[in-house]
Design a protein around this nucleic acid. Structure first.
Length: 134
RNA sequence: UUGGCAAAUCGGUUUAUCGCUGUUCGUCAAUUGGCGGAGAGAGGAAAGUCCGGGCAACAUAGAGUAGCGUACUUCCUAACGGGAAGGUGUUUUCAGCCUUGUGCUGAAGGCAACAGAAAGUGCAGCAGAAAAUAGGUAGCCCUUCGGGGUCAUAGUGAAAAGGUGAGGUAAGAGCUCACCGUGCAAGCAGUGAUGUUUUGUAGCUAGGUAAACCUUACGCGUUGAAAGACCAUGUAAACUGGGGAUGUUUGGCAGCAAUGUUAAAUGAUAGGGUUACUCGCCCAACUCAGAGGGUAGGUUGAUGGAUUCUGCGAGUGAUUGCAGAACUAGAUAAAUGAUAAACGUUCCUUUUUGGAAAACAGAACCCGGCUUAUAGAUUUGCCUUUUUU
RNA sequence: GGCUCUGUAGCUCAACUGUAUAGAGCACUGGAUUUCGGCUCCAGCGGUUGGGGGUUAGAAUCCCUCCAGGGUCA
């Protein structure tokens, strides 16, 4: 299975991020908070794009912030098949999911703990999307 | 052998699997992607932004004043407020000396914005008689009882205008002398700061404060990669260059003339910008000619350099010359991660063994320093504890 | 990645270019007044001037350095 998680998964456009915060919807799985919105397909072929953020307010040192971001990205890489299988359906083919993930705790997490939370987050995201469509 | 101080070096290693960002090779589509291989990928401080440079743009950039910075000497360096060596002062420890003193000499280490107070201006609460042109409270002495002389002694203070002894005097005083100290000039030593048990000279002035104004010497244009350059699209009120923009008439003087200069008359503008001021420079509407703008875009700037390592020299040293070899991150919301195992280090328990821990901290154009944070390890030097000889 | 400002009592601010025990209002505590409370009056409490070092006889003030917090840059 392809487990790569490269540059094309990164959300960079400032316009999209602004729009995401104006009209996006939220899902929580403490300590992770996710804002999501469906967008039109961009040049990249990935089913979703994501921003990972750790507030400077909670972690003073750049080392700690970088480490948490790396852990989150690693967990996402391992778990992305959940989301990709769901988005592979035909009705989502012309859309792209924009995500903004924020870490909201002042303690540095363990990898195993974060892995479970990420799984939970993706599952709840899928269920809420399905619920909203009904 | 215990602990401490200083300096220097290091700042875990290896393998497997799954990933991330560049580079390069091959291959397939066809100009940008896919697949596969190879190889690279955070620091000693990457930090703070406290200094200095490279690089870039800009006359709204120049010149002078103002302003800002630096400040023992010589050297190093691209440069510095950094560094090296030296000097001076001060302080700590140790040793020696005899006059036993807040003494002198020597050694080792630490610290110093360490130019000028003899260019000028200022400042100094309280206390004290008096605080910088000295002064007269007590005391001492003289007295015609009005007053005068005096700083030795006392007292105040952060600071009271050389010290000891002798002479001298009404009492005193560098008033005079000897020794000591201090300043100045010359000589000698040193590139120099400076030193001097060399000589002369001054009766002693010139208290402190310049991280107060200031003076002297030297240096400094401003803004910073969000600098700047290019590309695609195709034609903005933005940009570039010229005109606008300093004239015209008459007389005198210089000159062959062009022209320059000066005086008078007349016309237009007499506005704005610059780090404060002066000069200088630039600028509007309008017009002529050229050129092409926006874009949270892309490429570049951007990592081969005051580079690193080794060897042989130069120098006390910082540093540097020559030769050879090497290529050592380049991301853009920001890559260097996760999992597992082994080895090494430290600690606990302990026969093997088992368990736990591993600091400070993440490149953002690039260098040289400084400062701050830092578990632990190694080496060298000095001091120290214990034991043995 | 740069540039720049601020830090004084629990809170909001003073203290001029260095000199007295760092001052004022609000808050807090006690007392007076009132049947009780408020208002008012009187008295008190409260400070390592962000930390450290330096210059000076003397520092909130001048200088250096560290820390914390803000502002700003098409």
């Amino acid at each position: 299975m392809n487990q790569s998680f490269g540059k094309e998964y990164k959300l960079c456009s400032k316009k999209v991020i602004d729009e995401l915060f104006e009209s996006g919807q939220r899902v929580n799985a403490h300590p992770l908070a996710l804002t999501y919105k469906f967008m039109d397909k961009t040049a990249s072929k990935t089913p979703f794009q994501v921003v990972v953020s750790v507030p400077k307010r909670l972690f003073k040192h750049a080392v700690d912030r970088n480490r948490i971001k790396r852990l989150i990205r690693e967990c996402m890489r391992k778990n992305k098949s959940i989301l990709e299988d769901f988005l592979a359906k035909e009705k989502y083919q012309n859309q792209q999911l924009a995500l903004f993930l924020v870490y909201r705790d002042n303690k540095e997490p363990e990898y195993q703990f974060l892995y479970q939370k990420m799984t939970k987050l993706f599952v709840t995201l899928i269920t809420t999307i399905e619920k909203n469509e009904k």
